[in-house]
Computed example of a mutant assay.
Amino acid sequence: MNSDNKSSENDIAGEDSDSGISGKNQSGEEFSPEPLSLEDLYHIYGIERSHADNVARNALELFDILNSIHGLHPEMRNVVEISALVHDTGVATDFENHHKAGRVILLLHPPSELPERLWPVVAWTAFLHKKRVGKEKVEKLKGKDFGKMPEDLQNLTLKVASIIRLADGLDYSRMESRLGKVTFGKNIVRFEIKGQGAAIDAERMSKKGDLWHMLYDTKLEFRPESEK
């Protein structure tokens, strides 16, 4: 999959077709999502605000810097921001498996600030933000509930998640690392990372770039600012 396989993100925000997000709870009973505001999600699920804000800041910077590559419609910038703000919703519920807990919570209580059609994008982005993601994992997901979403939403979710993974990696050390100088080359973008935790976070971003590199032909490289 690469940047030439662009889906119809441009039309997603305005579509009113069925999102297919109603489902069954653990008892097998049908449920319909009950949206909550971001503030309510923060309060009820104890989201770490400083980390959430840092990841959202990082994600928006990455969205803007890489816009010529990811090709997402500008309206998707808001989806990226909100996905970043709630990516760790499940931490207080189940730290070890917070990506799974977050998906369940956000399928039940999606952010009310987003249109209904985009609710599952946020839930599945939370699920995809933690562990390694490669072609095999994505193919397995397509055979499960993830694959029941419209294909354009599946593609959008993967693209949003690829950015959130990088943004989360940039705050891995919790030392306020920031993006520094960015250099564009042929099929490569090099980022210098600033801050006391730059070495830690540059390494983490490299690991979390797996999904990005699966989706796009343009390689991303990360190194501490002081490293020459």
Rank of each mutant, 00 (worst) to 15 (best):
Lys207Ile: 04
His98Asn: 13
Ser7Phe: 10
Pro35Ile: 12
Phe184Trp: 07
Leu36Cys: 09
Asp217Ala: 01
Tyr216Pro: 01
Arg165Pro: 01
Pro120Arg: 13
Trp124Gly: 00
Leu179Asp: 11
Thr157Ser: 06
Pro111Val: 08
Lys219Ala: 03
Ser32Val: 12
Ser162Asp: 08
Glu75Thr: 15
Ser50Met: 06
Thr93Met: 12
Lys140Pro: 01
Ser27Trp: 15
Asp201Leu: 12
Met76Asn: 06
Glu227Tyr: 02
Pro115Ala: 12
Gly180Ile: 14
Phe95Pro: 12
His98Gln: 09
Lys181Met: 14
Phe184Ile: 15
Ser112Met: 04
Thr125Ser: 01
Pro111Trp: 07
Tyr172Thr: 06
Thr89Tyr: 08
Ser3Tyr: 14
Pro110Asn: 11
Glu96Phe: 04
Arg49Pro: 00
Glu30Val: 06
Phe191Val: 13
His43Gln: 10
Ser7Asn: 11
Gly195Ser: 11
Val182Met: 01
Arg117Pro: 00
Lys135Ala: 07
Asn155Cys: 09
Asp201Tyr: 07
Glu113Lys: 15
Leu156Ile: 03
Asn67Ala: 10
Lys144Trp: 13
Ala56Met: 09
Ser27Asn: 09
Ile193His: 00
Ile12Cys: 05
Ser173Pro: 01
Ala13Gln: 14
Glu61Phe: 02
Val133Tyr: 06
Pro115Glu: 15
Met149Ile: 04
His87Met: 10
Glu203Val: 13
Asn25Thr: 08
